[in-house]
Amino acid sequence: MSDQLSIKEVRYQSMVLIKSWPDSAQKTDAILAAFLGIDALPVVGDFISQNDIYFAVISPGHFMMFSNNELLCSEISKLFSADIASVVDISHSRCGISLNGKNSDNLLNKGIAINLTDDDLPGMSVLQSSIHSIGIIMFKLQHDDYLIFSYSSFFDSFYAWVIDSAEEYGYALT
């Protein structure tokens, strides 16, 4: 990863939550796997990036998907009847940053008490936590390379926290 810490605002056109029930779990998994063109869904805590779609398994039966395809949400809604899974459009609900480069881990560890080393948190892992009382969902692509989303109303505060925490390392806004 690069030596320079960089921060960039990101927003995806579509972001959606899919939640199934234990009795519809298998069916839901199959529908999602087929949609994504993969054999099996990743395990809890992992995410994949497939055809510009990010797909994460947050907990059993609880999935998050996002991409820049603004039709993604309506496409997904059509796949599930109400008794199989709930689909919640959260496209506007989250705003995020891409954080990468040297000291990304150290910056994040100012606010979260989670071991971010590759041994404890391998690449392509997703986790939810909070920084400075702001709920976040974090996607670790690889060491020192993250996508982090907060709820939209918190974003200004979250961004200010990130910038302030980056001051001692020096950073670039990209």
């Binding site: 100012k110 400075h132 702001i134 709820y151 109303s153 926290w161």
Partner: peptide
């Protein structure tokens, strides 16, 4: 207190 001071004292929610 760390950096939880001044404007950063606590997170703030803003409407669009």
């Amino acid at each position: 207190a760390g950096r939880d001071i001044g404007n950063h004292f606590s997170a703030v929610r803003r409407t669009p």
